[in-house]
Amino acid sequence: MTTQENFGSVGTARVKRGLADMLRGGVIMDVVNPEQARIAEDAGAVAVMALERVPSDIRRDGGVARMSDPQMIKEIQATVTIPVMAKARIGHFAEAQILQALDVDYIDESEVLTPADEVNHIDKWGFTVPFVCGATNLGEALRRIGEGACMIRSKGEAGTGNIVEAVRHLRTINKAIRMLQLADESELFSMAKDLQAPLPLVLEVAATGKLPVPLFCAGGISTPADAALVLQLGAEAVFVGSGIFKSDDPERMAKAIVEATTHYLDASVVARVSTGLGAAMKGFETATLEQRLSERGW
C-alpha cells in the first residue's frame, strides 16, 4: 500500500524491500521474552522475531500455533532498539492487520504456525508493513513475491536443528535461477508455466540472475558452521530459531553465529568462534518427523 502523506510516501515497495536490504549479512533471532531479546541484541542480532514458543517447542507441544500475544510483542519492542518481527498464520490477514496495528517492523507469514487458509496466502500488497515468506523452490518464492512479499527465506525444516532441508531449498532455488539464466528467451514462457510463477517475475530473474527481493535462510541453523554453509550457498542473511536458546550457552552461541555470518568466507574466524561452544541444540533426523512444516504453504 502506498499512502501519500504531506511529507512523503509510506509503504512503497522500495521502503519495504529496503529494510530487508538493511538486514543483509545479519542474524535474525527467535526470542520468546524481553530477556532473550536483550541477549540477542547484545550479541549483535540485526532483528528479533517475537514469538511465544520457538519452533522446536511448537513441534513438541502440538496443537494449533497462532500469532503471539500482543502484550509479549509490545514488551519486546520496548526492550530493544533493533527491528522486531512477528509471525502471522498463512492466509490469516486479520492477524497480520493486528501486527501492523502493533507497529511491528516485519511480518513473517509463517509455516511454523498452523495455516489459516489452505488455498490463499495473504494479499501482502495491501499492507504498509513488509512481509517475509518461506519458500522451498523458485516457483513458490516468485508466487510469494507476486503476492507482495518483500523478503524470501528458504524454509528449511524449523525446529529440527538439522540443516539438511535448508540446504536442499537453497540449492533448489539457486539451481532454478541458473536454469532460467541459461534458457533461450523463447523457452521462458513455458518455464514460467512449469514454475507456476508470474511471467514478469520469471523474465526479471532470468535477466538479473537473482530474486527481486533478498533471499535469506531459515530452518535448522544451529551452529556457526551452519551459518557459514548457507551463506556460501547464496543466502544473504540467516534466521535462527531454536538454535540459540535451545543450546547450552545461548549468549555465546548467539555471538558466535553473528561473527560467523559476517566472516563466513574466513574459515579461521568460524573455527575460532566454534571452539568450546558447548552443545548445540539436540535436533531431529528429518526423515523420522511426523509433521513437516515446510510442506505447509504452496
Binding site: 538493511m22 538486514l23 549479512g25 545479519g26 541484541e41 547484545d42 549483535g44 532498539t81
Partner: peptide
Amino acid sequence: PGGESTAIAHLLVTS
C-alpha cells in the same frame, strides 16, 4: 553502509 547500527557497532569491536 546502512544496516543495523547496534549490530555494526558490535561487529566493529569483534573484528
